[in-house]
Design a protein around this nucleic acid. Structure first.
Lengths: 232, 232
DNA sequence: TCAAAAGTGTTTGCAATACACCCATGC
DNA sequence: GCATGGGTGTATTGCAAACACTTTTGA
């Protein structure tokens, strides 16, 4: 199957593991990138959509599909790559515990999760793509509760709070945080508990996807519009 | 100069005129569209960036460049057009009074501003592109004061309120609206007044672009994050 | 019994909302 | 003088923010 010349997709894949927000990078060695860390990416086939191409590429590396992905931006200046290539950037949210890296990815020497403040130099304009993706991720989290994409099925409120704190690099008041999260009624209390912790074990929660879907379009209170206006 | 095969740009151009929010459509007759209303669009040249291509195409129709434009989304499913073409959609905000339509645009039989609730059937998947663009426009206005792109240099507070009301299709309380707008200190009172109105003439204001640029990254109050967090 | 994190309520202040009347002008 | 939209102020209320102690468990 032919590919579309002059277009590619690149994916900023975020994961949350060990209390840290991480980004997946690949050490690539191909026509454009020589033994450098870079975002996973690739070409679009003639018979697949742009979004599907991104899903496929992610699946080829992690072995799993149906992942939360979102378009970030199109980078298309001439000169961004040796040949003239316009790339559509995506970001994806995955739980690294589930989405294990595949070994022996063709064209990739190595794959690794990097903590956000330890990202090495990357190829081409991928630094800019990463920064733009992170900005978009922050915005997303500001306006929509997507945290569960990054967490295991069951998690504690502290896990969720840590996630927010890592994404924004700030500390949150845990009373207010719990009030808001529980007040949104997006979590379902399970009968599980933390195990093997040397302190009071936390309750485990899971996301209420149904209620989440209802919330999806809610939007947030703004200066100009009345808060009840949610038609987005 | 060669063009990039398999990629195009399409522009949803919004204007505000006569108290109505309008969209510019072109009656196109070319390889893909036969005598149908459609968004202005075209190919990307090898030596120009994607964003520049969008600016150029807009300039070719209106004769004016340096317009507020923003990427909306990439539409790239196979089958959206006869051949395999991925299109990058943009929206632009222009003041129709300034950006006059050019006659005799190559490949375009006619160009016209349509009120949003009177948009005719459009070619290909342009209906979807228009809807997505409008959604993005609404979001933009919710979080950033870009109204002045659509208004003349000097305007009344009522003009601005009308603009918001048209975009969202709701009515706003004028006392609260004025309080917020003036409170944001984004407007500079000029010494001009409305003329020839058979009622108390309104003061004319202009935007304070400098202060606006400072506000640009402010972001809005959110549920999870403290309101003072603005690092976007 | 100590360490460590989980869990919990109240007060305060600000900002969004709702609401109604006088003002300036043209005709 | 009247019709028309411009322009203004206040009271209420709900929510975000700040804040500290008790509870539960493992070691």
């Amino acid at each position: 199957m032919n590919i579309l010349k002059h277009i590619s997709v690149d994916c900023a894949i975020f994961g949350f593991e060990g209390g840290e927000l991480k980004l997946l990078l690949i050490k690539r060695d191909d026509e454009y990138i020589h033994n450098e860390w870079a975002l996973p990416g690739g070409n679009i086939r003639e018979d697949e959509g742009v979004n599907e191409a991104a899903q496929r590429i992610l699946a080829e590396m992690s072995g799993v599909g149906d992942v939360y992905m979102d378009q970030v931006y199109v980078f298309g200046d001439p000169g961004r790559v040796k040949d003239r290539i316009v790339t559509v950037a995506f970001y994806a949210l995955v739980n690294p515990a589930i989405y294990k890296l595949k070994p022996n990815i063709p064209g990739a020497l190595e794959a690794r999760w990097f903590e956000l403040d330890k990202i090495p130099d990357v190829a081409l304009d991928h630094k800019e793509i990463i920064e733009t993706s992170l900005r978009k991720l922050k915005r997303r989290f500001k306006f929509e509760p997507v945290g569960y994409e990054l967490l295991p099925e069951k998690f504690t409120l502290r896990d969720l709070q840590n996630l927010y704190e890592k994404i924004y690099g700030i500390e949150l008041d845990n009373r207010n945080f719990r009030k808001k999260i529980l007040g949104a009624r997006l979590l379902i209390e399970t009968d599980g508990q933390q195990k093997n912790v040397s302190h009071r074990p936390a309750k485990l929660y899971k996301f209420d996807r149904e209620r989440y879907n209802a919330y999806k379009r809610k939007g947030i209170n703004m200066d100009i519009l009345p808060a009840w206006y949610n038609d987005f």
